[in-house]
Nucleic acid binder design. Structure first.
Lengths: 222, 222
DNA sequence: GCTCGGACTAAACATTTGTTTAGTCTGTCG
DNA sequence: CGACAGACTAAACAAATGTTTAGTCCGAGC
């Protein structure tokens, strides 16, 4: 194939990573299922046999993508790191922020992994909810976050809301008429609107809440 | 097989709908892909041949599920209805509300359809964003919704946020320790917390917004 | 009674899937 | 040099997939 560019580390800089990157791209683009060994091989410019030669099996390749992506999010490129330093402040959720800043293909893959329920991704989700809940609770104490009746549920919902545009990016791009929601400054515009909603809320008064409580009470004793 | 129970309407109450319902369940549970003709046939208690006899092909069956679900959401069971009557008030988004009240398998299927990008679902998503944006704009005028810098983006984000718990229901159920987020009164608790967030916001002051604007400005002229 | 049509099945079919096999090429180490 | 190891490919393989084929069963209509 193409001549090896420099081969400083003869192990890690060649076809193996090309295959993994191709897999990452395709998994992220088309979903963790629906991607074939042959498609990955073609994308990487190798034979189907080579991908299993390097990774053992398709499932193992997916697991390796999982691990790679998780390590990227946890602490750039280095496994065996989980926590991040400080609670900087809003806009940063110590892990979620890292996730949102990581390269686009990685982000795409992550969203797919969360949706398709790979086990590694599940663990990561739990972790992110954990630190996000703690972060918001800190914020409550420090005065920049609202109090809540259910911290854990709020943390989980907050995370799912940050993930939502990733999961529905196709639809949002179509509706908002942007090419790539996560590459242009459409990101900036989009995030700004979301932040407005997080800061000022969507509803201006307690009517919605009151309506809901009424409905909920009715449902409990009909 | 099992003896036909009563056969009032010999046409519509038999195996054909049983197949469609089985498909709906499996599609919703395992994702629109990843479901086989044989699995559907087994679930419905018929032979694989019969499902294509009735529906022509697997793809046609999926399209029929799409159409069925969409009609359920648009105006219960009846196609050729799109708009709903009035802007009742918060907690109801004229279509989104209908969607969230429809039977669980249908809801599950819908979430999957949005994620897997079936064309019918895309159209429905656009519709829902449309009426939701209009509804929130009305709310602005009527004083119960906050103003926004970008109504369309807010509508789209709002919809994606309401959809998020559906998309990530597996993770939320695990994190919150509930069996089925959309069948027990876990729904009530969950919706209540989300409504709090929609009403009071998550952040208590403008710091996050300010931080973001600073970052955004930096990115524009680095 | 007999045919006709549609629900329905069992088995075969072609294609696509992940994986294996056998082998080639290339650089390295003795 | 000569053997060895590993990257790599082409071809074959077995399993699973959607679909087709041939045929059975059964009720309705002449």
């Amino acid at each position: 194939m193409a001549a090896p560019p420099d081969d400083s580390t003869p192990n890690d800089s060649t076809a193996r990573t090309r295959i993994r990157d191709a897999a990452l791209n395709l998994f992220g683009r088309d979903g963790v299922n629906r991607v074939t060994v042959r498609a990955i091989a073609a994308e990487a410019g190798v034979s189907p046999g080579l991908v299993v030669h390097h990774f053992g099996s398709m499932a193992a390749l997916r697991r390796e993508c999982d691990a790679y992506v998780v390590s990227m999010v946890r602490g750039t490129d280095d496994p065996d790191r989980a926590e991040a330093p400080d609670g900087v402040m809003a806009g940063d959720a110590t892990g979620l922020a890292a996730m949102l800043e990581v390269a686009t293909p990685v982000r795409r893959y992550l969203a797919r992994a969360f949706l398709d329920g790979t086990p590694e991704a599940a663990k990561l989700f739990d972790e992110i909810v954990e630190v996000t809940t703690a972060w918001l609770t800190d914020g409550e104490r420090e005065g920049w976050a609202r109090p809540t009746s259910n911290p854990r549920a709020r943390g989980a919902i907050y995370v799912s809301w940050l993930l939502a545009p990733l999961a529905f990016s196709d639809h949002l791009e179509r509706v908002l008429g942007v090419e790539d929601l996560y590459e242009t400054d459409a990101t900036i515009e989009h995030a700004r609107v979301a932040l407005e909603m997080f800061t000022h809320g969507v509803f201006a008064d307690e009517r919605a809440l009151g309506t809901w409580d009424t409905v909920a009470k009715e449902r409990k004793n009909p």
